[in-house]
């Protein structure tokens, strides 16, 4: 069954809002263009928790190394939109 980009976006933003609820961030609303590191102050350990949360939420294993590794190097930041697109694509594979 196809999973829409909109559905994934809504659910990932909900996950991020719940996760960061008490982080004392300046960000008022998480939007597609929100960046995880720059705006949500993600450290690598937070990324780990997010990956687990997304996998448990969608009940699917997703190889996130494709998202964070580009040309063998780790990316410095990821936007919510990039994350949503990646998850949507992976969920609709198979």
């Amino acid at each position: 069954m196809t999973v829409t980009l909109q559905k994934v976006e809504t659910e990932i933003i909900e996950i991020l809002m719940e996760m960061t609820a008490d982080w004392d961030l300046d960000v008022e609303q998480i939007q597609p263009q929100t960046s995880l590191v720059e705006e949500l102050e993600f450290a690598s350990i937070d990324y780990v928790h997010l990956v687990v949360e997304i996998e448990e939420h969608f009940q699917r294993k997703l190889d996130f190394s494709e998202l964070i590794l580009r040309d063998g190097k780790y990316v410095s930041d990821i936007s919510v939109q990039e994350l949503v697109s990646f998850v949507t694509r992976k969920l609709n594979q198979d």
Partner: peptide, 14 residues
């Protein structure tokens, strides 16, 4: 989990 393999190296140093 495949996702667990993707955890960043920096976290280890922390």
């Amino acid at each position: 989990s495949e996702a667990e393999k993707a955890k960043l190296l920096e976290q280890l140093q922390m």
